[in-house]
Protein backbone atom coordinates (compact mmCIF):
# COMPACT_ATOMS: atom_id res chain seq x y z
CA UNK A 1 0.00 0.00 0.00
CA UNK A 2 2.85 2.34 0.90
CA UNK A 3 4.49 1.63 -2.46
CA UNK A 4 1.22 2.34 -4.24
CA UNK A 5 0.84 5.74 -2.57
CA UNK A 6 4.46 6.56 -3.28
CA UNK A 7 4.01 5.82 -7.00
CA UNK A 8 0.77 7.82 -6.97
CA UNK A 9 2.61 10.80 -5.48
CA UNK A 10 5.41 10.47 -8.04
CA UNK A 11 2.94 10.42 -10.93
CA UNK A 12 1.13 13.45 -9.51
CA UNK A 13 4.39 15.36 -9.17
CA UNK A 14 5.52 14.54 -12.72
CA UNK A 15 2.13 15.44 -14.19
CA UNK A 16 2.05 18.71 -12.26
CA UNK A 17 5.52 19.61 -13.55
CA UNK A 18 4.49 18.76 -17.11
CA UNK A 19 1.31 20.83 -17.03
CA UNK A 20 3.17 23.74 -15.45
CA UNK A 21 5.78 23.50 -18.24
CA UNK A 22 3.10 23.44 -20.94
CA UNK A 23 1.35 26.40 -19.36
CA UNK A 24 4.57 28.47 -19.36
CA UNK A 25 5.66 27.61 -22.92
CA UNK A 26 2.10 28.15 -24.12
CA UNK A 27 2.40 31.77 -22.98
CA UNK A 28 5.31 32.23 -25.37
CA UNK A 29 3.92 30.23 -28.28
CA UNK A 30 0.17 29.58 -28.12
CA UNK A 31 0.14 28.53 -31.78
CA UNK A 32 1.81 25.25 -30.84
CA UNK A 33 -1.29 24.35 -28.81
CA UNK A 34 0.63 22.80 -25.93
CA UNK A 35 -2.46 23.01 -23.74
CA UNK A 36 -5.21 22.62 -26.29
CA UNK A 37 -4.62 19.15 -27.66
CA UNK A 38 -5.96 15.69 -26.89
CA UNK A 39 -2.72 14.50 -25.24
CA UNK A 40 -2.71 17.34 -22.71
CA UNK A 41 -6.44 16.90 -22.14
CA UNK A 42 -5.73 13.26 -21.28
CA UNK A 43 -2.85 14.26 -19.00
CA UNK A 44 -5.11 16.78 -17.22
CA UNK A 45 -7.68 14.06 -16.59
CA UNK A 46 -4.98 11.73 -15.28
CA UNK A 47 -3.61 14.57 -13.13
CA UNK A 48 -7.06 15.15 -11.61
CA UNK A 49 -7.41 11.47 -10.78
CA UNK A 50 -3.93 11.10 -9.27
CA UNK A 51 -4.31 14.40 -7.36
CA UNK A 52 -7.56 13.19 -5.86
CA UNK A 53 -5.95 9.85 -4.99
CA UNK A 54 -2.93 11.54 -3.40
CA UNK A 55 -5.12 13.94 -1.43
CA UNK A 56 -7.35 11.10 -0.19
CA UNK A 57 -4.27 9.10 0.81
CA UNK A 58 -2.90 12.09 2.73
CA UNK A 59 -6.22 12.68 4.49
CA UNK A 60 -6.44 9.02 5.37
CA UNK A 61 -2.89 9.14 6.80
CA UNK A 62 -3.73 12.27 8.83
CA UNK A 63 -6.98 10.98 10.25
CA UNK A 64 -5.67 7.46 10.93
CA UNK A 65 -3.82 8.68 14.02
Amino acid sequence: MKLFFRILADITLILAAMILTFWIINLFNPFMEFLDNEITHGLLLLFSITSAGTALALLWQLTKK
Partner: peptide, 22 residues
Protein backbone atom coordinates in the same frame (compact mmCIF):
# COMPACT_ATOMS: atom_id res chain seq x y z
CA UNK B 1 17.33 10.63 -4.83
CA UNK B 2 13.64 10.24 -5.10
CA UNK B 3 13.31 13.73 -6.58
CA UNK B 4 16.12 12.98 -9.01
CA UNK B 5 14.29 9.92 -10.27
CA UNK B 6 11.13 12.00 -10.65
CA UNK B 7 13.10 14.63 -12.55
CA UNK B 8 14.43 12.03 -14.97
CA UNK B 9 10.96 10.59 -15.44
CA UNK B 10 9.65 14.11 -16.02
CA UNK B 11 12.28 14.71 -18.74
CA UNK B 12 11.43 11.37 -20.35
CA UNK B 13 7.71 12.20 -20.25
CA UNK B 14 8.38 15.56 -21.94
CA UNK B 15 10.32 13.84 -24.71
CA UNK B 16 7.52 11.34 -25.26
CA UNK B 17 5.00 14.19 -25.31
CA UNK B 18 7.12 16.14 -27.84
CA UNK B 19 7.29 13.09 -30.10
CA UNK B 20 3.55 12.57 -30.14
CA UNK B 21 2.70 16.28 -30.14
CA UNK B 22 4.90 17.75 -32.88
Amino acid sequence: GHLMVDLLLFAAALLIFAYFHH
